[in-house]
Design a protein around this nucleic acid. Structure first.
Length: 443
DNA sequence: AGCACA
């Protein structure tokens, strides 16, 4: 057997081709960037980006062979290498004569994303958590989840390709923040491509699919219990009926948990309308009312079992209340209606920036817009700024979630950044208060 | 830094 024809291609002896092979591209290079790169030498008729295992290779096809030769020749003798986003790109003739099968659905920017959730516990990621994660970039119309050979996957539908692209860019290859997942769930990494779909068909609201544009859509029979509420979790386990009101009991309460502390903790997930605290069974419990069930679900999932303070102090146990609207008769240090302005607060601290707990917490929450910590003599708190409510539009410029490939903290605690007192819990570092994710950093 | 596809 002669080893003639199967020589490695890494030669300077590739025969010319209209198609150039590019390597060492920056991660997730776009075809616009490829066209820019080739344009000075001729007409780029086709491109293919994100090629190869690392998705850092690409092809450019010129209309004419001489144009490809011009580009190769130029960079062969240039002192400046070809660059994309400041990164040197290596060029050579491709061993093929044309780009075939250029665009797959995954390459064409569309309004629907195909999300693969990787990780041993991927199946335990609820549709509500996915909704929360993707809502940071814009209104999520629909989500469907399903199991394929690729694993646990979801289709997430946005209004338009631009919004979908911003979500894809920020979230692809990142992990769902730990604080959004139950304690026992391992890391879950998101792999995102575009889907060919433009409009998902969601027949029922269920644990597998949701249509957020249509609140009147019937709930899947399989997910209904006697009270008519969704009662089946992702894993098929029965759940207590969801409610917009949460019942939180506080275990091991070594430190005083005030109304304001609760308000701050629970406001991380959406506007808190009302809180009522009371003693029960020798412990303290509180009812926390959100405007909608979605927000309560997310808050419950994020906070359940977490401690407000380091060291296992003030551990929260959260369940759904049967209440839907609390009746707050008086605003005092045990109960408050944040929806009614100008009701005098009886027997209360004048400001939530009061003495102890808030100051303790503040250092753990960098870069918040400050609204929540501003002294307020009224009982009314400003609406949280970021789009954590299911229907609140997101702030496209900053991504409130911190997505890390490494889960960033042991559950239930924060590192101790504060100079005094016990640290605030991790879950209490509200998503909306985290430093914005900075785009454009070099990978 | 080394040739792809749903």
């Amino acid at each position: 057997m002669a080893s003639v024809s199967s020589q490695p291609q890494f030669r300077y002896t590739q025969p010319p081709s209209k198609v150039l092979h590019l390597r060492n591209l920056p991660w997730e290079c776009t075809e616009e960037e490829l066209i820019e790169l080739g344009k000075p030498f001729g007409k780029v008729v086709n491109t293919k980006c994100n090629v190869g295992a690392n998705r850092n290779q690409a092809f450019i096809e010129f209309a004419d062979l001489n144009q490809a030769i011009a580009m190769i020749s130029y960079y062969a003798s240039s002192s400046e290498p070809a660059q994309v986003r400041g990164k040197t790109v290596y060029l050579q003739y491709s061993n093929r004569q044309e780009i075939v099968n250029n665009k797959t659905a995954a390459d064409v920017a569309g309004n629907v994303l195909l999300v693969t959730i990787e990780g041993d516990d991927a199946r335990l990621v609820s549709i509500d958590v996915l909704h929360l994660v993707f809502s940071a970039f814009g209104f999520v119309h629909k989500i469907t989840t399903f199991e394929k050979t690729a694993g646990f996957q979801a289709l997430v539908q946005f209004s338009d390709a631009e919004t979908a692209t911003s979500a894809k860019t920020a979230l692809d290859s990142r992990s769902i923040p730990r604080y959004l997942l139950p304690d026992h769930v391992g890391p879950c990494t998101l792999r995102i491509t575009y889907s060919g779909h433009t409009d998902l068909s969601v027949k029922f609201q269920s644990h597998r699919s949701r249509d957020y544009t249509n609140p009147y859509l019937p709930v899947a029979p399989s997910a209904i219990d006697g009270s008519g509420q969704i009662s089946v979790g992702m894993d098929g386990k029965k759940l207590e009926p969801e409610s917009n009101v949460l019942l939180a009991s506080i275990e091991n309460m070594q430190y005083a948990v005030t109304l304001d502390v609760l308000h701050m903790v629970f406001s991380a997930f959406g506007p808190v309308q009302k809180i009522a605290m009371f003693d029960k069974n020798g412990g303290v419990q509180a009812l926390i009312q959100y405007p909608d069930v979605q927000t309560a679900v997310v808050a419950k999932e994020a906070l359940e079992g977490h401690c407000i303070y380091d060291g296992g102090f003030c551990k929260l146990h959260i369940s759904y209340s049967r209440h839907t609207d609390l009746s707050i008769k008086i605003n005092n240090d045990r109960s408050r209606d944040y929806t009614i302005p100008n009701i005098p607060i009886v027997n209360s601290q004048p400001s939530i920036l009061g003495q102890q707990p808030v100051q303790m917490i503040a250092p753990a929450v960098p870069q918040y817009n400050g609204a929540q910590f501003a002294p307020t003599d009224q009982a009314v708190m400003p609406q949280p700024s970021a789009g954590w409510g299911p229907t609140v539009p997101a702030v496209p410029q900053s991504v409130p979630l911190q997505m890390h490939n490494q889960p960033y903290m042991p559950p239930g605690t924060l590192p101790q950044p504060s100079q005094m007192g016990p640290g605030m819990m991790q879950s209490g570092a509200p998503p909306a208060t985290l430093p914005p994710y900075h785009r454009g950093h070099v990978q």
